[in-house]
Amino acid sequence: MTNPGGFWIRLLGMILDALLISGVIGLSIFLFNLDTSAQTVQTGESVLSILYFVLVPILWHGYTVGKRIAGVRIVKKDNTEVSFFTMVLRYILGGLVYGLTFGIALIVSAIMVAARKDKRAIHDFIAGTYVTRDRPEEKGTAARA
C-alpha cells in the first residue's frame, strides 16, 4: 500500500460526490416535476447512489467524480483495481455496519483514517481496499485517467 489518501482529501471527494448526486437528483425532480415525498423518488435516489458508488469506481480505475477531482482513488490492498464484489463489500456491507452501529462505527472510521498510518477505515478493512493518491498504470506507464 503506497501513498494513502488522508482524512481531509477523502472528505473533499465525498462532499464533491454528494454535491454531484444531489444536483442530478434535484435537476431530475425539477425537470420531471416529481413529488419529493413519494417513495419512488426516495427509492430512486438510493438506487442511483448505490449504482454510482459501486459501478463508477469499477469502470474508472477506482475513481468517482469527486475522488478524481480530489486526486485519490480506491484500490485493493495489493494495488490492483477494484471489482464488483469488492465495491459491494465496501459500500453496501460497510454502510450496513455504519447503520447497525447507529453511526458509531462511522466516527471510529473517521478517527482511523485520521490517525492510522495506512489511512484505512472500517469499510476498507471489510473490502480489503485503501484509498491512494497514486494514479493508475497502463502498460507500465502512468495513465491519463
Rank of each mutant, 00 (worst) to 15 (best):
F125G: 04
V65I: 15
A142W: 14
R90W: 02
I15V: 15
R68G: 02
F84S: 03
I50C: 05
K139P: 06
T80G: 08
A18N: 12
L27D: 04
N33R: 11
N33P: 01
G13W: 06
K117P: 01
I92V: 15
L48T: 09
A70T: 09
L59R: 05
L51Q: 12
I122A: 03
R135I: 14
L106R: 03
R144N: 15
T132V: 13
M14V: 06
M1P: 10
I74Q: 05
V108R: 00
F102D: 02
D124P: 00
I21Y: 11
S83P: 08
I69S: 01
G5N: 07
Y130Q: 04
N79M: 15
L16A: 08
N3H: 14
G26M: 09
A18H: 08
L12Q: 13
T101A: 00
L27F: 02
I15D: 04
T36S: 09
V24H: 08
L48D: 12
T40C: 09
K119M: 04
F7I: 03
R10F: 10
G128E: 05
R116I: 00
R144C: 08
T40M: 10
F7V: 01
I50V: 08
G140Q: 05
R133G: 12
T101D: 00
A115W: 00
A121G: 10
D17A: 05
L106M: 08
V56Q: 03
Y130M: 07
S46Q: 11
A145N: 09
D17Y: 11
V54K: 01
D118A: 01
I9E: 11
Y91I: 10
H123M: 10
A38H: 11
V65Q: 02
V72H: 04
H61N: 11
K117D: 05
G44C: 09
I58A: 03
I74S: 14
W60F: 14
W60Q: 11
N79Y: 11
T80C: 08
T132P: 08
V54G: 00
G62V: 13
G103E: 01
S46P: 00
